[in-house]
Simulated scan of single mutants.
Amino acid sequence: MDNKRHEEISFFHPKIIIGTCILTGTILGSYKFYSTNFRRISSSSQIPQKYFHRQFIYGKVTSVGDGDNFHLFHLPGGRLAGWHWLRLTPKVNDFKKLKKKTIHVRLCGVDAPERSHFGKPSQPFSEEALEWLRYYILGKNVWVKPLSIDQYQRVVGKVLVWKFTGWKDVSEQMIKNGVAIVYEGKASAEFDGKEQVYRELEAEAKKKKKGLWFQKLVLTPGQYKKFYK
């Protein structure tokens, strides 16, 4: 019999304990990293509280249903996570496949002319505003900074889209081109610190009679809602 004494290693041996701790820490750290950076968000209720007013969510605009809101398919990790080259992004207006998979976003600081709802006639320039927004962001990749959740469970957010001249604030561009006015309501009013900028752009668009300001009589969306209430 060999005289060497064989060391019996039990589950409580320091090497086993240290190895287990390292493995557990690695697994938990990897899970936290995945949850923070690569887990898809598919509704406003899933957005972590720490994102509001601080972080942006990256995704693809899959549909635009009104002049001031749209649906976003979250693309966590962007190209680094394989989106657009290893992982396919969804097609636009594929409502059946995208049901309950997108975030409903309401553009902050703006109000676009009302489309027809519940038997009420559409507001003048509502279709032009809708077409402008579709042309500007539909199918594009955008960054959304969540600011709050409104009464319809939409994310009220600041939206940035890349154009040839750089990143553009979508709300700012809508006001500048006269396809929306500065938001007047008290509920869910969010400007991300740019209310004064928006109001100055609105005054300039009004002066130049751009977009909806070309009309002789302009009712704000708020006034229009009250009129047909």
Rank of each mutant, 00 (worst) to 15 (best):
M1F: 12
D2H: 09
N3D: 13
K4N: 14
E7A: 15
S10C: 06
H13W: 12
P14N: 02
P14W: 03
K15I: 12
I17C: 06
L23S: 07
L28E: 06
Y34W: 11
Y34H: 09
S35R: 07
S35T: 00
N37V: 06
S42N: 14
S42T: 15
Q49H: 12
R54I: 01
Q55N: 10
Q55T: 10
I57F: 13
Y58F: 14
G59V: 07
V61W: 08
V61F: 10
D66M: 08
N69E: 08
L80I: 14
L80Q: 04
K91F: 12
V92W: 02
K96L: 15
K96V: 15
K97S: 14
K99R: 11
K100G: 01
D111K: 04
P121C: 08
E127L: 10
E128Y: 11
L130Q: 09
R134T: 06
R134C: 05
Y135L: 05
Y136P: 00
I137R: 00
V142T: 08
W143A: 13
P146N: 05
S148G: 04
Q151F: 09
Q151K: 15
Q153C: 05
V155Q: 01
V156H: 04
K163T: 15
G166V: 10
K168D: 05
S171D: 07
S171K: 09
I181V: 15
D192K: 02
D192R: 02
G193E: 03
Y198V: 06
E202S: 10
K210T: 10
G211H: 12
K216E: 15
T220P: 03
K225V: 08
K226G: 12
F227H: 11
Y228S: 14
